[in-house]
């Protein structure tokens, strides 16, 4: 199950559609890294709203995505974390520290638009 990545100006938007296997998550990370390099993107939004469970692997991968895209000059924002999932994450002890988050795509794009150096 490949995650569709949409290019919107200086930003890339990855919309997760359904539960992802470990392989899918790795592939997403690699695709985003490649595309940020290819398009010199400034912002990346990863939308996880359909996910009703996020375990340590998924959370670590999101963190990896944020780090690798940052190394290539892009700012990543994770959006759409469901209330129960957010709760489970803090109980688990993995609260995506150091990774920017926003409520939804609209908020994320607004934030990215306000960053210095944005188009």
């Amino acid at each position: 199950m490949s995650v569709p990545i949409l290019k919107q100006g200086p930003n890339l938007i990855a919309s997760i559609q359904s539960a992802l296997s470990d392989e899918d998550l790795i592939r997403l990370r690699d695709n985003l890294a490649a595309q940020v390099g290819q398009y010199r993107s400034k912002g990346v939004v990863v939308d996880v709203s359909p996910l009703d469970v996020m375990d340590s692997f998924a959370i670590r991968t999101l963190r990896d995505i944020a780090h690798t895209t940052k190394l290539r000059g892009a700012h990543t924002i994770v959006v759409g974390i469901q209330p129960e999932v957010a709760f489970a994450m803090v109980q688990l002890g993995l609260a995506l520290e150091g990774v920017a988050t926003a409520l939804d795509l609209e908020e994320a794009l607004s934030t990215l638009g306000a960053l210095p150096g944005a188009a």
Binding site: D52, V53, M54, E84, F87, A88, Q91
Partner: peptide, 9 residues
């Protein structure tokens, strides 16, 4: 729903 999410996680 919350407890179910914790269990599934």
């Amino acid at each position: 729903h919350t407890a179910t999410t914790l269990i599934a996680t």
